[in-house]
Simulated scan of single mutants.
Amino acid sequence: MSASVPSRPVRADAERSVARILEAARVVLADDPTASMERIADEAGVGRATVHRRFASRKTLLETLCAQLDDQYLRALQEAKVDTAPPLVALYRVTERVMELKLGNRSVLDAVVSALPGRDSHLSAEVQERAEQLFARLHAAGAITAENPAWCLRLYLAIFDAVHHTPAGARNSPGPPTT
């Protein structure tokens, strides 16, 4: 039987390095979703060895960025009070915040999708569960009348996916199709 080794506290300078690396990754990936770890290190102002010491692989770095985004989604759900607020109010609040997150993190999401094959969703089970809970409450309140609230949630998420794939700077409203 092995004893568990207590983890050492992370030094403040190491925490700052990690924060700089993650911010640099967001900036660099916005320009090039396939950017190298070396380019991210240059943007962060740290050596490539520092990046690799903090993140063993590109996959680990992207998973960390994804986990941070997931935490932001959870915070948005908590701030929207999906458990207690009137369901339509909670839906409005969540929609507003998630729209900001999706548009502000396109590069992270693109990089995750391209670099982590097989990961069909960047949403954690907890985020998914909380969203399902909100849609069940919307259904119970009669705000959505479809038989299956999970189907409505899939449509809702598909709308966010479409927003994510709309080119930056595109018009807010597509208007009528042109021929």
Rank of each mutant, 00 (worst) to 15 (best):
S107P: 11
G142A: 09
L155M: 14
E23W: 03
Y156W: 11
A19V: 14
V18S: 02
L109W: 05
Y156D: 03
V5T: 13
H122S: 12
R26E: 14
L77I: 01
F135W: 02
V28K: 00
R97Q: 05
R20H: 11
E96K: 15
I40S: 02
N105G: 03
A168V: 14
K81L: 10
L103R: 15
A146N: 13
G142Q: 11
Q133A: 11
V51Y: 00
L138V: 12
Q72A: 13
T34V: 13
A12D: 05
K81G: 10
T60I: 08
A158E: 08
G104I: 07
Y92R: 13
L116G: 04
D83M: 07
A162Q: 14
A80G: 10
A158P: 01
D42P: 00
R39C: 06
K102M: 09
V108I: 07
V51H: 00
E79Q: 15
V89M: 12
L123G: 03
A143E: 10
P167F: 04
P167V: 10
T64R: 11
K81P: 01
R20I: 05
E15D: 15
Q133C: 08
M1K: 08
K59L: 06
P86G: 03
D83N: 10
E63K: 14
A141Q: 08
Q133L: 12
P87A: 12
V94L: 02
G47A: 09
S57W: 06
H122D: 12
C152P: 04
F160E: 05
L29W: 04
P86V: 11
R106G: 02
C152T: 15
E23N: 13
L62V: 14
A49I: 09
A125E: 15
V112Y: 01
E23A: 13
V18R: 04
H165D: 03
P177K: 13
A168D: 09
V5Q: 13
R97Y: 00
R93W: 02
R26T: 06
G142D: 12
A30S: 15
A3T: 10
R48L: 03
P167S: 11
A146K: 10
N105V: 03
D32C: 08
